[in-house]
Nucleic acid binder design. Structure first.
Lengths: 187, 187
DNA sequence: TCAATAACTAAACGATTGTTTAGTTATTTT
DNA sequence: AAAATAACTAAACAATCGTTTAGTTATTGA
């Protein structure tokens, strides 16, 4: 019964997500978000409630993007080899403007404190559990694996992903390649 | 020719270091530093110049503490086994108030942006290079290693340390133990 | 066509950021 | 003892933080 929004919420959230990814949560200010999202503070608040709200939606947006990388892993018939490909896809995911910026989720996990917004922390845990579950499913496709080994390996690979994400903020690409190769040596 | 300082700079910097370790750089405010260091803002500025200056000295203080963990690695006769012990010592280093807070240096590397204080970034790079050098020296004690392999392995272990530091902020201790064991499987 | 309604602009909000400065107190040396 | 000096306290600084609010503009349904 009144005016329509002059912007698409999904579109502006993707822009916010990219900004958060580049700068982290604390460093990103509402002023920067206004400029990047191309809409007024009022519009941001009416759509997402708070800076925390924008970040929460940004994480969901990031997860959606990351899902595309998980598709080959879901479809792989060769468990460990598929996992290795996922690791390469994962660092390839952060290219151009985001190369050296790591993973938005692990960055958030590293930046957020104990008293940080609990909804965001829950989202981070959910994400980690989901990826780990996909790893375990892929590992099940290997023959002669006992369940206990799969759990341990899933832990190892998920933590290695954390390491890869963190390291990609500091190291060169050829070092990361070397790291991935080592991760899969005898695993 | 006048009044003496009522505080010891090394002592108050260690307190600052602990605060930064717990909270990260951005989240730690001058007000919090005043309270934790037990001295006035004026004293902080007259001793360290700026918040950046306090952080820089905090990093140096952290490095000094970490050096104690490197001593066994320097003295080890069994390269890889010594490295493994270092990894265990490294997670044991973050106990009590700092358990789950990772490593101050890698936290800073993850938090600091491109435009962050360049002196701090240089200190971080120096630290990483030093640790990596110690890893390489330890690996040289293994017999029949070709130099190229040592370089690759040094990369792998230093990135694994990043992963371990990052992961320790999220995962349980037994998962970390499992991770360390996997890092050293066939390496 | 016109009242209703919601999205818009832009200014202001109080709180807090890192930093500086004025004024006071304590210690030192001559 | 008294002038000199530096460490102290505490208040204020401008700038920016995330958030809100008042006022305007555009679109809607009756």
């Amino acid at each position: 019964m009144a005016r329509k929004k002059n912007y698409n919420e999904d579109e502006v959230i993707e822009k916010a997500m990219r900004l958060f990814w580049r700068n982290g949560y604390e460093t990103t200010s509402m002023q920067m978000l206004e400029k990047e999202m191309g809409i007024n503070k009022f519009s941001i608040y009416s759509s997402f409630g708070s800076k925390n709200g924008v970040f929460l939606e940004s994480i969901k947006c990031y997860k959606k993007k990351l899902n595309d990388i998980l598709i080959p892993l879901k479809n792989t018939t060769n468990g460990v080899e598929g996992l290795k490909q996922y690791f390469y896809d994962f660092i390839a995911f952060s290219k151009d403007e985001h190369f050296g910026k790591g993973c938005l989720i692990t960055n958030a996990a590293n930046e957020l404190q104990e008293d940080a917004d609990s909804e965001i922390k829950a989202e981070l845990r959910k994400f980690t559990a989901e990826i780990r579950n996909q790893f375990a499913l892929a590992l099940q496709k290997e023959k002669n694996q006992d369940p206990n080994t799969i759990e341990k390996k899933a832990d190892y690979f998920i933590i290695s992903m954390f390491g890869l994400a963190s390291a990609s903020r500091v190291f060169q690409k050829n070092q990361l390649d070397n790291y991935i190769e080592n991760i899969f040596t005898n695993n």
